[in-house]
Amino acid sequence: MYRFLLTRQWLILALIALVLIPTMVELGFWQLHRHEHKVAQNALISRNLKAKPVPVAGLTSPGHVVPRSDYWRAVTATGTYDEKHEVVVRRRTATDGSIGVHVLIPFDLKGGGTVMINRGWVPSAADQHAFPDVPAAPRGEVTVTGRLKADETTGSSGIKDLADLPDRQVMLINSAQQAKLLSRPVLGGYIEQTGPEPKGGTPELIEAPDAGSIGPHMAYAVQWWLFAAGVPAGFVVLARREKRDRVAAAAAAEQAADAAEPEPAKA
């Protein structure tokens, strides 16, 4: 009755189904893991942003790699801006998606030490080789609040660190790179400034990361698993339909043969 399943066509179809089922199940688990990662990241962001700010020197030091548990941690820093060594970080986007630069400046801490601070976004200069118009940093001793971030690398950010850039322009925010340029130790990581608010709203402070959206990953996981369940169900439906069509074709052929037989001659 189902001998047709042993034909070449149906064996290939069965093989394809056997490959598709575990592949779709695995894709479902991949999306589930992405969902779990997003949920854990949102919890970390929310917890660190709500934490009481602590002095940045208590969380990092020269050469220190900021651990994931300290990403976005609220920190403070008291000292003075070193505007002479301010640089801009190319190809950065504003809140509205406009392309410009981030303003990166060394901040000399009261009591010793230097930390890099991302003051925020400004438009690029019309000439990419020129330094953009950046509002002056506050003079004198100030206390800055912000979010602690890990150093950027090409591997972690996907941004290629280009060579031969114009003076005072960089591609990555990296404390080790800045320490070489400054010829002095720099605390690992950097501060994404949240206060004080700049006069006139520029540089534009960077928005806090989204800690509410979990994305569609869970829905995609369920979707892949439903597809996996649908493959064997679809195979059964196709096989039953093929059987029905073959039975119908055989019955029609038999009926046609009966109709074609000559009637016996009458005496």
Rank of each mutant, 00 (worst) to 15 (best):
L148E: 11
A136Y: 03
T154Y: 00
G155I: 08
V134C: 00
E152K: 02
K149S: 12
A136E: 05
R147P: 06
P132T: 06
R139F: 00
D167F: 10
K149W: 01
V134A: 00
V134D: 00
A150Q: 11
D161V: 04
P166C: 09
S156F: 03
G140T: 05
T153C: 08
T153I: 05
D164L: 10
A150Y: 04
V142I: 04
G140S: 03
V144T: 07
R147A: 07
V144F: 02
D161P: 12
D151M: 02
A136K: 05
T143H: 14
P166T: 11
A150N: 12
V142W: 00
S156G: 11
E141G: 01
R147H: 06
D133Q: 12
L162D: 13
K160E: 12
E152Q: 11
L165K: 11
P132V: 05
F131K: 01
V144I: 10
R139L: 04
V144R: 02
G140A: 03
T143C: 13
F131V: 03
D133M: 08
D151S: 08
L165R: 15
L148D: 11
S157H: 08
P135T: 04
S156T: 15
S156L: 10
K149Q: 14
G146L: 01
V134S: 01
L162V: 15
T145M: 10
F131C: 04
E141W: 00
G140R: 04
V134P: 00
F131Y: 11
G155F: 05
A137T: 05
G155K: 11
D133P: 07
A137H: 02
I159L: 10
L165S: 12
K149H: 10
R139E: 09
G155T: 14
A137V: 04
K149G: 12
P132S: 07
T154R: 02
A150K: 08
K160R: 11
L148T: 14
G155D: 12
D151E: 06
L165Y: 11
S157R: 10
L162R: 15
G146I: 05
P132M: 06
D164E: 15
L162F: 15
D151Y: 02
T145E: 14
D161H: 11
S156D: 13
D133K: 09
D167E: 15
V134N: 00
V144M: 01
S157Y: 05
D133F: 09
K149P: 10
A163F: 09
K149N: 13
K160C: 07
P166S: 13
G155C: 07
V142P: 01
V144S: 03
P135F: 09
R147K: 09
P166K: 09
A136D: 09
D151C: 07
R147Q: 12
F131A: 06
A163N: 13
D161E: 11
A137G: 07
A163I: 02
E152W: 00
P135C: 05
R147L: 10
F131N: 01
T154H: 03
L162G: 15
T145Y: 09
V134W: 01
T153H: 06
G158H: 12
D133N: 12
E141R: 03
D151I: 03
G158Q: 14
V142C: 00
D133W: 03
V134I: 05
A136N: 07
G146C: 07
K160V: 13
K160M: 10
D167N: 10
T153D: 09
G155P: 13
D151K: 02
P135A: 08
D164C: 13
P138D: 01
I159E: 01
S156R: 14
E141Y: 04
S157W: 03
P138R: 01
